[in-house]
Structures are given as structure tokens and as C-alpha cells.
Design a protein around this nucleic acid. Structure first.
Lengths: 152, 152
DNA sequence: GTATCTGCAAATTTTTTGCCAGTAG
DNA sequence: CTACTGGCAAAAAATTTGCAGATAC
């Protein structure tokens, strides 16, 4: 994990490149995203960041998250039924989502780079700029018994 | 495309297996989903189905779609910013989403079955039950010029 | 006949927006 | 200085829910 100042430097640089300003709020949101691996919702980011910055509002968290996404410092993920989640890791990797507790785990990425390239060809006239791969299933804590798996 | 009656038979069978009843509304929603390839939102399904069944309500469309998903006759997809979309194709295939017009196109599937199996191993103690792969980019109608691609 | 379903409207949930005061550069 | 931002609260958008009457089986 990067130190606070290194994280801030990265943020300032990315914000500057996009004509945006560094603020304490954006710094706190980014610092939280960069050091967690739980892929939090906007609400969860709000609750966490509020402990350090009690005056921050949920609206500001939404605005800050969108700013980070716009600067390429975070990725916005959406899943089946619930609210959007944000991922501070921008290097290529995949996700595994637990259909029971909705937790999202990271998987080692780049495994499919070659396969994606061949799929890109099958896409024909579609211009591919990115992709997303996600496994679904049960995390270790939520694995149901065999019986439940069959009947459910 | 299946005839209306064959589609209905499939629906009745799936509903019955799940202890649910066949209704005109569910039939109309499923028939529409089964014959389109546009991955409509609930609202779009509502507008389309209402032409045949003017009295149907948006709430009923939401309920019907969830019922279909529960019976395995449709898949619910969610994307970056907008509302959920429903896919009546249940055979394995992938999607390509246009980041400009938000259209969702189908891609030939099963190309990655083997790769997913190896990824499954890297998932460790996570029990994989399914996966989703989606390319993002520009559809033929929305491809920006090279200049725009560089600066945007 | 009776449990399930529909239509309607109200309620929830999630996210966005407008506005004025505050602040970064 | 003077845009760009944050806080607040209202609004919008998407989806869910409760209930009384209608309907499938």
C-alpha cells in the first residue's frame, strides 16, 4: 500500500491532467479506495470516510467517486441487484462475486489477454476498448451444503 | 424464432416446475424477450408489451421479468450507469456494450469455456457457479474518428 | 374454491442536481 | 481573484411493495 503522500501525489497528478483540483474530500475518498480491497458502495465509502472527515456529505462522495472514475483512478462496477461498487485497482484483474453475501473478491488478472484478443476478432465491426470478466458463485464463508446446492 | 405456441409451452413448463402460474402478462413479456435481441430495459419491455396488452402495468412487467429470471428463462444484466437489461437468450454467449449508445450486442459464446475452467482453479476456495464476460467499446454506428479516440 | 397474480399507487432505494458559500491555484 | 468545489436538501430515476379485486388451475 502506498503511503498517504505517495497516494496524494498520484491523485494530484491525475486531477491536474484532467483540469480538476485537489481537495481534502477527494483525497480522503481516494485514499480509502486505494487501500481497501472490499469494492465498497458509495454509501460504504461515505461511512468510512466520514470517520476522518465528519463533515463530508454523501453527495460529495458521489461526486468525488465520479471524478476519480473520470480520471481513470477507479472503476465503477455494477452487479445484479444492488448498488454500484467502486474499485480502486486499475491494473487488469477479474472479480468473483458471491451471490449470497454480495462480497466481491479480486482474482489474478491478465490470464485471458490472448483469449480476449481472439474474441476481439469475432466482434467484427465492433471497436473494443475494454472488457470485464466476472465469476459468480459462493465465497468460502457462504458455500452451501451439497443438498442446498441441488435444491436451491 | 419459436412460434407463439412453442414459446408458450416452454414458459408453461418452466413456470409449472417452479410452482407458478401461466398468465397472459407473463406470456406476453416472455414472447417479447424471446424474439428480440436488443436486451431491453424493463421500461422498454413495458412499452413494447403494452402495444399488445394495453392494460399491463410497469409493476407487473418488473414482477414478470423477475419471475422469468427465477425460472431460468431470462438473464438480468446490469451495466455501468443505467438501468438493468434483460436477455431472453439463456445459451452461453457474451456481450459487447457500446459505451456511446449503450446498445448491447451478442457475441458468439463458448469460446472461453476452457479458459474459464482454468480461471476457476485460480479462484481457490471460491465455488464458481457462473460467469459473465462483456466487451465494451463502440458499435459500428458510434465509432468515433481516430482524432476523437485519441483526445477523448 | 382458493392460492396466486394483476393493476394501481405509494414507498424505497440509489443517484443526480441546483444553489450559494467556501476554497484551491 | 475567479473558477471549481462542497454541503445541503430537493429532485429524479429505478425498482419494490401493499392491498383489493381478478384469475388460473
Amino acid at each position: 500500500m502506498l503511503s498517504k503522500s505517495a497516494t496524494d501525489v498520484r491523485l494530484r497528478k491525475a486531477l491536474g491532467a484532467n483540469g480538476q483540483r485537489f481537495t481534502e474530500q477527494r483525497g480522503a475518498v481516494f485514499r480509502y479506495l486505494a487501500q481497501t480491497d472490499v469494492h465498497p458502495t458509495a454509501e460504504e465509502v461515505f461511512l468510512a470516510v466520514r470517520q476522518r472527515l465528519p463533515a463530508i456529505s454523501l453527495g460529495t462522495v458521489y461526486k468525488s467517486l465520479e471524478t476519480l472514475v473520470g480520471c481513470g483512478l477507479a472503476v465503477k462496477l455494477t452487479y445484479g441487484d444492488h448498488s454500484a461498487r467502486y474499485d480502486g485497482r486499475t491494473d487488469p484483474h477479474h472479480h468473483a462475486r458471491c451471490v449470497s453475501c454480495e462480497k466481491v473478491l479480486d482474482l489474478p488478472g491478465e490470464l485471458l489477454t490472448g483469449e480476449i484478443d481472439s474474441l476481439r476478432e469475432t466482434a467484427g465491426t465492433f471497436t473494443v476498448t475494454g472488457y470485464r470478466l466476472e465469476l459468480s458463485g459462493y465465497c468460502p464463508e457462504c458455500v452451501p451444503t451439497k443438498d442446498l446446492l441441488v435444491t436451491a
